[in-house]
Design a binder for these strands. Structure first.
Lengths: 343, 343
DNA sequence: GTGAAAGCGCTAACAT
DNA sequence: ATGTTAGCGCTTTCAC
């Protein structure tokens, strides 16, 4: 393993000169650069990231903070697509991507990442009410981007969908189809995304004079199994919903399975709308109407915002709202046209 | 940001004593430990990973090398589940997980990771014929585990399924159902996994006296769209297959979509078997028969093997074959029983 | 335009 | 049981 000294010796210059060539300093003569580069090549030199990091205080890597509860992170195609966007931008900007899964103590994980200087910036997933991580990064003024939006007024950059409006439009679609008993199937009510979608859902109902019924609003865990259980719950109600807005396609799939097992037929007996429009939504039986949120673009946008902050070496408060579209398929009636409503 | 010196000053000891307390050295008196720990706490000390890494030459992190072609990495639930296994073990063993996506030059990425000391070990994905990365890690004697098996005889640890046997059994199942024209839908023929599954498929055919027909063996890209195109190809053949073995559930989904669009009805007109048994296989229409490969366990096994090598600080040649099961569902006939055949 | 020297924060001999 | 010292490999003043 050759060091900068070895290169220097071979090129008959000092280590500092090699370092300058590495940084492509304009103050080094072309001739010397040539010679050093050749030595670099010959010794197949690779800089030691620790030595470099120790002096520059940068890690050339960004962290993805996966909340402890989010075991579903890896299971959900939503996150996978988002990650592909993150990874794409990170790589092209010269950053590695570090996954931080903090089983137990999330705050501790943040500390390790930030203060241990392991990463230069953080992408935060899934904000919740009274989130402890957000104030922490804000306090440290650590470059960070939230995927979602902060619940409280915390100065942090974020990339989000307009979830209130999206849920509003999706619910409106169900109302337009004549449904009056519409259920809501979401993740934890502590999650901002759940709250926002619930708000949009309620708003649509109220607008046409339907009083939201909390019995119809189910909070469950973000997995197929959660959707299954939630749907069983909804269908057991004295007056069951004829339509359901699921806050995630995977929940919708679970709901469809529950409905199927009990002999309900979609879309005749029951309409279902999902969220995220993962690739398999189209392949479900029947194909699932879903709100497309452009997951890849969310990841790209978040990472761009993050890199910008890292370059400026400070926390910025910026935000970006990514478009959505309601993709209408057979799961809530045979409107064959791929009608979209965007903003 | 407090350093070890600050802690030392506060606790009125030397930096080395603090370092020893951090490492929980038995040679430090309980009294001193107490005092140092209090100082640690008070200053909210976090070790600088670079300084530590520079001297210990360890990164406390493992890398996942995602091959350039594998854009499908993130899109495929297979990898997501595998990652959850990796991440689980890594975290519990005190390692961070670094994702390395090398758009262009994979060998270069390996160099950066290995020689830049960015990670202590590597998990390699998707080996292919004449893979350039494998010899490289072997030459460096760098702790690594391949997910799959090496094509050539390269001394490297790996975790794999018995893909030959799995494809054999899956094909046998189709033969037993009376099919004689069976197509194969796989990824690149350069991939060892494709070759192995193709071998098992051919073996099953030959065993009952059917000569494999290369026209029936399609190589496509590992996405739903690839499965769709491949299936279109197969169905356009003069004598179309009545059954298809897909080397991935996502391919199978694409194949199902193609069949559906052309008006074929599963399982009457066409039987399909997939690979991996991702969660959504059960939810497809009809539910997809698939070879369950225990993706999570593959990730766990690979990471355990890797950590072992890192601890031994050398490359080991060990391997582990993870069981598979053929999970029979409606996509190839109504054998309702969840019959499994394992080895 | 290039070299010498200091120092980033930590660990690990080597002392005592 | 604890302190002193050197040094990991690099960047960056400060000289010249």
């Amino acid at each position: 393993m050759s060091t900068i000294k070895d290169v220097a010796a071979l090129a008959k210059v000092s280590p500092s000169t090699v370092s300058r060539v590495l940084a492509n300093s304009p103050r080094i003569s072309d001739e010397t650069k040539q010679r050093v580069r050749q030595a670099l090549e010959q010794l197949d030199y690779q800089p030691n990231v620790f030595a470099r990091g120790l002096v520059t205080n940068t890690a050339s890597s960004i962290g993805i903070l996966i909340p402890p509860q989010m075991t579903e992170f890896f299971a959900n195609p939503f996150f996978a697509e988002m990650m592909s966007g993150v990874s794409e931008v990170a790589r092209s900007e010269g950053f590695d991507t570090v996954l931080s899964t903090s089983a137990v103590d999330e705050e501790d994980a943040v500390d390790r990442m930030i203060r241990g200087r392991r990463v230069d910036g953080l992408i935060l997933l899934g904000s919740r009410i009274r989130d402890a991580v957000l104030p922490k990064v804000a306090q440290h003024q650590f470059p960070s981007v939230l995927l979602g939006r902060p619940a409280e007024d915390i100065p942090i950059s974020y990339v989000n969908n307009d979830n209130v409006q999206a849920a509003y439009e999706a619910t409106k679609h169900l109302l337009d189809l004549g449904h009056e008993k519409i259920g809501f199937l979401g993740g934890s009510f502590d999650l901002v995304v759940t709250r926002d979608r619930l708000e949009g859902y309620r708003h649509a109902l109220l607008e046409v004079g339907i009083e939201p019924n909390t019995r119809m609003e189910i909070s469950t865990y973000f997995l197929e199994q959660g959707g299954y259980q939630g749907m069983m719950h909804l269908l057991a109600l004295p007056t069951r919903p004829t339509a359901v807005l699921a806050s995630d396609d995977v929940l919708a799939f679970g709901a469809m399975r529950a409905a199927g097992e009990l002999g309900y037929h979609l879309p005749d007996d029951l309409a279902i709308v999902g969220f995220n429009d993962i690739r398999l939504a189209e392949l479900a039986n029947p194909p699932l109407t879903s709100v497309r949120v452009h997951m890849h673009e969310l990841g790209v946008g978040a990472t761009r915002l993050l890199v910008e902050q890292i370059r400026a070496s400070k926390m910025l408060k910026r935000s970006k709202i990514v478009d959505f579209e309601l993709v209408i398929r057979e799961s809530c009636g045979f409107h064959r046209n791929h009608q979209t409503s965007s903003r």
